[in-house]
Amino acid sequence: MPRRAMRSDWGSVQEIDRGRRYRLRWWQETPDGYKRCSETVRGTRRDAYDRLAEIRLEHSHDAPCPTVGDVWSRWYRPQLQRMVDGGERRASTLYVYDSTWRTCAAPRWADVPCDQVRPLDVQQWLDGLTNSAAGGAMRILRPALDVAVRYGVVDTNVFRERYLMPSRSTTTRQDDGIWTLAQLGETWARIHGAWYESAFLLAGFGGLRVGESLGVRVDDVTDATRDGVPMALVRVERQVGDAGVSETLKTPQSRRTVPVVGRAGLWLLDHARGGGDGGWMTGNGGGEPSVQKTMRRAWMRDGGEHPFRNLRNSWQTWMRWELRVPPYLIEPMMGHVGHDVTSIHYDRPLAEEYADVMAEAYRARPFDHTWDNLGL
C-alpha cells in the first residue's frame, strides 16, 4: 500500500513500492500554462530526493503554488455562491463566511502558497484568536483546502489536522439582560419617533427575532381588535439579514402569525395604514427594508441598554411571568419546534386562537394603562 506523501520545502515525494519506487510531484511552467507535474523514480529514497532537488533547480523561478487566497477566490467562493443560487445555502451564511474570510483568515493566509502552510504556523495563529473567531475561520479554511486537494494543488489538507483550539474563556460573555414590561415602556418612550420603532415593538411586544422584525411588510399587519382589546395580528413570512431579504426562516414553525396587544398593537396598525416606509414596516428610506447591521448600530448609538436581540427574551419572560400565559402557548408564538408528539405532529392553532388567548390575558392585566405619563 502506498505510503503517505512526504512533504518537502518544494514538491513532495510519495513512496509507491517500499525502497524501490517513488512518485515526485511539483508545480512548474509548461507550454500549456502553470501545471502540476509528476515523475516516478526507481531507486532509494535518497535518489528520489536528489532528483526532486534537481527538478527544483530547473524550475525554481517558475510561478509559485497557488495561494490559499487563490483557492478561496478561484474555486471555493464561487462554489459557495452556486450553492446559494441553487438554494442549498442561505445568503446570510455566505455573508458570514465572507466576513470571516476578510477579518480572520485572509490577513494571515491569503498570500501563503498552499504547499507552504505548516501545522506549527496554524497552531500559533490559532493561539492568537478567540475561541469563536478560531472556530469560524477553521470552518471555511478546512473545506477550502479540501478543494485544493481535490484539484491536485496539494496532497494533504493541513487545516484538517487536530489542533488545540483557544479556551472558551477567551470569548466575551454575551449580555443576557432583559427588560421588564415597565422598562420596555420607558425604553419605547425614549426611542419614540426613531426609524426602527416598528422593529422595536415587533420584537419587544411580539417576540419576533431581529431579522423577522425587519422583514414585516405593511400588508402583513391586520386589525384583530376584539371586546375592547386593541390588537394587531402580524404575519411572519420572511426575515432580513445583512445580506438582504430571505424567504427562508429559521425553522418551518417560524412561519406564523403573532398577536401584539395594547398600545403597541395600535401603533403598528396606524403605521401600517400609513404605508410604512416604502411598504416595509421598517425601511431604509429607499423602498427597501433596513438590514440588521444598520439597525444594531442605531440601537447602540441611541443607548440601548442590552442588545436588540434580547427584546425577544424579554417578551417571553413578561408573557409568562407578568401576563401569566402558559409556556405551551408561548412556544408556538415564538416559532419554536415542539418537543412532544402532539406539538410536533398534531397541534395547529389558528391565528384567531392566539388572538383570543392574548385578549384574555390583556383584559386580566392591562399592563400599559398607566403609560399615559410616558407620552405614548
Rank of each mutant, 00 (worst) to 15 (best):
T130C: 11
N131S: 15
N131T: 15
N131K: 14
A134K: 03
G135L: 12
G136P: 12
G136A: 15
R139W: 07
I140T: 00
L141R: 04
L141G: 06
L141V: 08
D146Q: 07
V147E: 13
A148D: 02
R150L: 10
Y151L: 13
G152M: 11
V154F: 02
D155L: 02
D155Y: 01
N157M: 07
N157E: 04
V158E: 05
F159Y: 05
R160H: 09
R162A: 01
R162D: 04
Y163G: 01
Y163P: 03
L164A: 12
L164D: 14
L164R: 14
M165T: 02
P166A: 10
P166L: 04
S167P: 05
S167H: 01
R168A: 12
R168V: 10
T171D: 15
T171S: 14
T172F: 12
R173F: 07
R173I: 10
D175R: 07
D176M: 13
G177H: 15
G177F: 13
I178R: 15
W179F: 15
W179R: 15
W179D: 12
T180N: 08
L181G: 13
L181Y: 07
L184W: 04
G185R: 03
E186I: 08
E186G: 13
T187W: 09
T187P: 02
W188L: 11
W188I: 03
R190H: 14
I191T: 05
I191Y: 06
I191N: 08
H192C: 14
G193Y: 05
W195P: 10
Y196I: 00
E197C: 00
E197L: 09
E197V: 09
S198R: 05
A199W: 03
L201E: 05
A203R: 00
G204Q: 08
V210N: 01
V210S: 07
E212T: 01
L214G: 02
L214P: 11
L214K: 08
G215Y: 00
G215C: 03
R217S: 08
V218D: 01
V218E: 02
D219V: 04
D219P: 14
V221Y: 03
T222E: 13
T222F: 06
D223F: 12
A224T: 10
A224L: 13
A224G: 11
R226T: 14
G228F: 09
G228V: 14
P230Y: 09
M231F: 08
M231D: 04
A232W: 01
V234G: 05
V236Q: 04
E237L: 13
E237F: 02
E237N: 12
R238V: 01
Q239N: 10
V240W: 00
D242Q: 07
A243C: 12
A243L: 05
G244Q: 08
G244I: 05
G244F: 07
